[in-house]
Design a protein around this nucleic acid. Structure first.
Lengths: 179, 179
DNA sequence: GTTGAAAGAGGCGCAGC
DNA sequence: GCTGCGCCTCTTTCAAC
């Protein structure tokens, strides 16, 4: 070889993007299938996947379970305000969050500088326990407001990707067509 | 065999739950590894996974990509109110949602009977385009309020599962220890 | 339920174009 | 960058306990 065979480039072409799309939809696709789906032969397809991995684009391969089938009926968004938005209080709160499996998502939000949580529990009793016995006992938590989801209209994990090409951050920015 | 070998039971024991836990964390685990992780030999492990599949517990095996690495910097929650909460208006709105890849999540909420969206876009320009050129043009949409996520403190797809045992819905409910 | 063996498929690396 | 070959591990099935 002259230099590196497939040195991690910051420019993804449409084939790379097609690969990412396929993997977002199906983490268990075989390399042979994937290659067929993106019009490549298995070896170069495999090499591209490895290169994309090296770029750190993959977080995890996961199985999505059916919450309803498992009896997890309650999906609730909880807005949490802290008494003081000093960095220390934030760190404490975020540390507490880590161990609670019912907290599916947690965002630090603009505006009132509070947190938005999405919490999943099987029933109201569990929710009450979560809020009263745990959430309100975190030091610094001042106000809590819950909104219930009546229906999960959409839930997906596949990120929106551009159709044509994509320059990765810390390369310079080019305007891209996002679909 | 006397009747069915492994007829889909509605009762999951701790081994089933251990399997679900492993798969939630790693969709690409091999059956051999999985078996070792849950203290089983490969064959019964494989049979259990197939039984869990038949129960409809698995939604999908997906690859989670790194939004930041792909230049998707903006994560915004949008509350959408409709002029009238007639069923027809809801159906129209939900239908429109389906085709927009930047809508990661959409929930029908209690209270003002509106929707909560989580939208991911690369930049402000894309967000403006999404809201002005598309969202506001859906018939029935009256009010829109956006809140930005400054930081994604936590994002996971693994549902909270009980530690010990679990009776699936449409069997009768027994109180379970949810962790 | 469990273990063990056997066949078929796919991952993965290599040599050549 | 692509193709074709080959090893080797894993999945998946089938017998017996």
């Amino acid at each position: 070889m002259t230099s590196e065979t497939k040195l991690p480039t910051r420019r993804l072409d449409r084939t790379d993007i097609a690969i990412l799309r396929q993997l977002q939809d199906n983490a268990r696709i075989t390399n042979a299938e994937l290659a067929r789906a993106v019009n490549l032969s298995p070896t170069p397809c495999f090499n591209r996947v490895r290169a994309l991995e090296k770029l750190g684009l993959f977080r995890q391969h996961v199985t999505l379970l059916d919450a309803g089938a498992l009896g997890l009926r309650i999906n609730v968004f909880i807005q949490v305000s802290l008494e003081q938005q000093v960095e220390d209080a934030l760190r404490v709160f975020e540390k507490e969050i880590e161990d609670r499996p019912e907290v599916m998502e947690c965002y630090l939000m603009t505006g009132d500088a509070d947190y938005l949580l999405r919490v999943v529990v099987p029933d109201m009793q569990s929710l009450e326990h979560f809020i009263v016995q745990w959430l309100t006992k975190i030091p610094g938590v001042s106000n809590i407001r819950s909104s219930f989801a009546l229906k999960q209209v959409r839930y997906k994990t596949a990120l929106p990707l551009p159709t044509v090409g994509l320059t990765l951050p810390s390369g310079e920015e080019t305007p891209q067509e996002w679909t």
